[in-house]
């Protein structure tokens, strides 16, 4: 097995969602916390892509922010190349080796800066280059790498379309010469034909530069296209984790099956299906036992009582009592 770049060990993250102090005292309510990420473990090998997929509120974006140190874990530990992330981030030399691409290319670029300054910011911040000419040359090179022209550096973000802006975000993320990129829904704000351009670009860059990706998305087809390994999240937990092909070919967890069944697909012309009922419950007050049990067709008493642990099935880890007991049809 190749070298592990990022290693998350039983990571949890809580958020305080209590009402303001005075209101709480008056109405005698206790503090309330929301566990956005609950005991999540995964490892990403160098040069590969791990994708996390799930619906709104499943905690996938929180994991993305934990992975680059924008949030500190409430429990567990994240290690970057073997070092605890907090220690790694204290060293500029390690910090520049991780970067992030955000979802909304309209909000993540400063509208008052020229593109060349946006792309050069990490270079300046980390002091990678100091000579003006060298920085200009490097920015031109980065813009070319993402399919823009060096002359585009003179323009402002509003002069670009959504797809071009996302290219600028990618150029900026690459400017600190990172090895590990966290991509939080990088194409969900884009049209499909532009999405294809960006996904192809990201795969090309990965091959050329040996990048390691943590890829977050709600779109299973995009995830299938991009990932080597795949984690399916539900209410803060990873319910199934394994090689992408294995998970897609034989989805084991009932939630993974639900997701795969629910997606409208081009190959489904004229076919009908039975949609699964129910909605994702509130993470503030999650169901007991396995949090998926209220929507699960295979739920029994044990599922309502006991939180399932991960068990190994082939190369895939699954957190489900029914799968463990072989109750799945």
């Amino acid at each position: 097995m190749s070298e592990i770049v990022l290693d998350a060990v039983e990571v949890s993250r809580d958020f305080d969602v209590s009402k303001p102090w005075l209101q709480r005292v008056v109405s005698r309510e206790p503090k309330r916390t929301l566990r956005a990420v609950d005991n999540v473990s995964f490892a990403i090998s160098r040069g590969t892509t791990l994708s996390l997929v799930g619906e709104s509120g499943c905690g996938k974006s929180t994991v993305a922010r934990l992975a680059v140190g924008l949030y500190a874990p409430s429990g567990g530990e994240i290690r970057f190349e073997g070092q605890p992330l907090s220690a790694a981030r204290a060293q500029a030399a390690l910090r520049r080796r991780m970067n992030m691409i955000f979802q909304d290319p309209y909000a993540s670029l400063n509208p008052r800066w020229r593109v060349r300054d946006i792309v050069a910011e990490p270079i300046r911040a980390f002091g990678l280059l100091t000579a003006r000419d060298a920085i200009t040359a490097r920015v031109g090179e980065l813009l070319t790498q993402v399919g823009l022209a060096p002359a585009d550096g003179e323009k402002y973000p509003h002069e670009f379309s959504g797809g071009q802006r996302q290219r600028i975000s990618i150029a900026r993320a690459l400017s600190s010469e990172p090895e590990f990129l966290v991509c939080d829904e990088p194409t969900s704000a884009l049209d499909v034909s532009v999405q294809a351009q960006i996904l192809n670009l990201m795969r090309d860059l990965q091959q050329r530069l040996g990048l390691t990706y943590l890829f977050i998305s709600h779109n299973l087809a995009v995830v299938r296209h991009m990932s080597d390994r795949l984690g399916v999240m539900y209410l803060g937990r990873i319910v199934e984790l394994g090689p992408g092909e294995d998970v897609f070919r034989t989805p084991r967890h009932p939630y993974t099956r639900l997701l795969l069944d629910a997606i409208p697909d081009l190959d489904m012309v004229g076919k009908s299906r039975t949609p699964v009922g129910g909605e994702v419950p509130s993470p503030i007050d999650p169901p007991s036992g396995c949090t998926f049990h209220p929507r699960c067709p295979l739920a029994n008493d044990r599922c309502r009582r006991e939180k399932p642990a991960h068990t190994k099935h082939g190369n895939v880890l699954v957190a489900c009592h029914a799968v463990e007991e072989g109750r799945t049809a």
């Binding site: 499909v192 294809a196 779109n219 299973l220 299938r224 296209h225 997606i263 697909d265 081009l266 190959d267």
Partner: peptide, 15 residues
């Protein structure tokens, strides 16, 4: 350009 769930391709067609 639409990624498929059924089969994985190396590269998506792009316009």
């Amino acid at each position: 350009s639409i990624p498929s769930l059924e089969h994985r391709v190396e590269r998506l067609r792009q316009i």
